[in-house]
C-alpha cells in the first residue's frame, strides 16, 4: 500500500494538490490512490520503471490523458477553482501554457514541423492574450534565454533544421513563455546525448531559478532526478510507494522497490 505524503507542509504556499488520483482503462486499474503535493517553487521528481504509472499521473495533472481513460480523485491548482480532472477542455486550454508549461521526451513531436520556430513561440503567447508586436519582441528574448545561439536565425528556422538539443530548448522556451507557476517535464532529456543532456538540465535549473516556477519531473534516471529535484516520489504498479526528500529516499530507501530501482540504475559496479 502507499504511504501517504510524508513531508506535507502548511497548505498556505501549496501550488498543486493531487488527492487519491486513480486512472483506469476499461476494467484495468493503471494508477490508484496517488497523493502528491507541490509547493510554489518546489521541484518534485516522479520515478519508477516503465508501466509504473508515472507518465499517466503526469498527463492526468496536465489534463492530457488520452480519451477512454477514466479518472477518479482530485487535482487542484492554486488559484483555479474546482477539480482539474473534471474541468472543461476550454478551461484546461486556458490553464495549459499559461499556468503550467510542458516539456516531453520527444521535442520533434511537440513542435509543428511546417511552422517556423519564431511564430510557434509567439503563438504560445498569443493564445494567452499577448499582443502581436509584444509576442514577437519577447520571442527573441525567450530564445536567447534558453541559450540558443543567434536567436534571430533560430526563429526563422524550421524544427527539422535544428538539433535535438536545440529543439528541446525551443520546447522549453515555449513552456516558459507565459511565466507558468508549474513546469511539467516528462523524460525531457532521455532522447538526448549525455553532453547535451547535461546542458539542458543545467538550463532547466537556471530557468527555474530565474522564474521561481515549481517543477514536476518524470524520469527513469535516478541520478538526473537527484540532480534536479528537492523531493521525489517513487511509483510502482500504479501507486506511490515512497516519497520524501531526495536524500531521504535515494540515500536511505525504505521500500524494497526503491532499493531495486537504485540497484538497477547502478551499472558501474559490475564488469568482467
Amino acid at each position: 500500500m502507499s504511504s501517504p505524503a510524508v513531508t506535507t507542509k502548511s497548505a498556505s504556499d501549496a501550488l498543486l494538490e493531487v488527492r487519491s488520483l486513480g486512472i483506469s482503462a476499461g476494467g484495468t486499474t493503471l494508477v490508484s490512490d496517488v497523493a502528491l503535493q507541490l509547493r510554489r517553487g518546489e521541484r518534485v521528481g516522479l520515478i519508477g520503471a516503465s508501466g509504473s504509472g508515472k507518465s499517466l499521473t503526469c498527463m492526468a495533472i496536465a489534463g492530457l490523458l488520452p480519451e477512454g481513460l477514466r479518472t477518479t480523485g482530485e487535482v487542484t491548482l492554486d488559484g483555479e477553482t474546482g477539480n482539474l480532472l473534471q474541468a472543461t477542455e476550454r478551461s484546461l486550454a486556458r490553464i495549459r501554457g499559461a499556468r503550467t508549461g510542458m516539456v516531453f521526451q520527444e521535442p520533434m513531436t511537440a513542435l509543428n514541423p511546417t511552422m517556423r520556430i519564431g511564430p510557434q513561440v509567439a503563438e504560445a503567447m498569443r493564445q494567452h492574450g499577448v499582443g502581436k508586436a509584444e509576442a514577437r519582441r519577447r520571442t527573441q528574448e525567450l530564445l536567447a534565454a534558453v541559450d540558443l545561439p543567434e536567436p534571430a536565425t533560430i526563429a526563422r528556422a524550421y524544427p527539422h533544421q535544428l538539433s535535438g538539443g536545440q529543439r528541446q530548448r525551443v520546447v522549453l522556451s515555449i513552456a516558459l513563455a507565459n511565466g507558468p507557476d508549474l513546469l511539467i517535464c516528462d523524460e525531457p532529456t532521455t532522447a538526448l546525448d549525455v553532453t547535451v543532456q547535461a546542458k539542458v538540465l543545467e538550463l532547466i535549473e537556471s530557468r527555474l531559478e530565474a522564474s521561481g516556477a515549481a517543477l514536476l519531473f518524470v524520469s527513469h534516471d535516478l541520478a538526473v532526478v537527484a540532480q534536479v529535484c528537492d523531493r521525489v516520489a517513487v511509483m510502482y504498479q500504479g501507486r506511490i510507494v515512497e516519497q520524501g526528500s531526495v536524500l531521504e529516499v535515494l540515500a536511505d530507501p525504505q521500500h524494497e522497490h526503491t532499493r531495486q530501482l537504485i540497484r538497477n540504475a547502478d551499472l558501474g559496479g559490475g564488469g568482467r
Partner: peptide, 19 residues
Amino acid sequence: LLAAVPDLQQSLGLARARQ
C-alpha cells in the same frame, strides 16, 4: 563525456550540499 554522465552518488552529494 565522462563528466556529463549523471551519477547518483555525485548527485546525492550535491543534494546534501544544497541541504
